[in-house]
Nucleic acid binder design. Structure first.
Lengths: 130, 130
DNA sequence: TTATTATTTAACCATATGGTTAATAATTTA
DNA sequence: TAAATTATTAACCATATGGTTAAATAATAA
């Protein structure tokens, strides 16, 4: 595990950059899970998953507890909090963007100024709950 | 630039995983900047920074606008919003943790239950504004 | 005790990343 | 026009990443 902010952010963002690892975290958000269970949805070998778990562990996003021959994996969300807090300093930049868009729309067509989240759902399974 | 959520998250988190790139983004949060200006604080070559800018561009976190022989770099925060929204689904996990800690402290010493952010400031310059 | 199950470690491979120096392109200044 | 400035591209290198298969370790079941 990691002790200072810079390393926490390095390892946390790196861990979150892989879709398999993000899917593993989503699975764990429904409850603790064994390694085999975690590996099941993916078309890769168990050692591959084992490596992904090391990466998540390094970031402090996952802990393993030995329970007989099974290892119970648990989500640890704390590093995400630090990641979100780092990103939060930029919030005003994307909010400003939205506000100027909102203002633009208001000026152009005052009757229809609803801001709609454009959802590029095409070819995208992120966020699917199993 | 990137069109679907999974790729946005892949590239955005990957871009944020490097401390040099995060520092570049912080610099840009104070205003647009040339490549040379961006490179100045770092002890690496200009081509190295140029590569980092490509990574930020790939994630849609930066745009460059040609202005004579200078390229004006600009922060684009939108992908961070998507990153934060992905992480936000885990918010309750770190909040629950804090709450149970708060409850624990209340039970142990009801007079001194203030939650203090432990700040491991040692060897850590993240978040320093230039 | 011998299998079986769960998981990791070891050794390897291809590709990605982050850095270098040298050369090139484009623009401005002298 | 020649020189200087800004930045990129090219070619290269070391290390990291994400995958593989085979072997090893540990615990439960037969």
């Amino acid at each position: 595990m990691v002790n200072n902010l810079t390393e926490t952010l390095n390892f946390t963002f790196a861990a979150l950059a892989d879709p398999t690892r993000r899917a593993i975290l989503e699975r764990l958000s429904f409850g603790d899970s064994s390694v085999t269970e975690l590996a099941a949805p993916f078309d890769v070998s168990l050692p591959a998953i084992s490596k992904q778990l090391r990466v998540l562990e390094r970031a402090g996003l996952l802990t393993q507890e030995k329970d007989g021959r099974v290892r119970r994996c648990r989500l640890e969300a704390q590093p995400m909090k630090e990641a979100v807090e780092w990103i939060a300093q930029y919030q005003k930049f994307w909010e400003d963007k939205l506000e100027s868009l909102a203002n633009f729309l208001e000026n152009v067509s005052p009757e229809d100024s609803t801001l709609q989240e454009q959802d590029s759902a095409e070819n995208d399974s992120e966020g699917m709950k199993p």
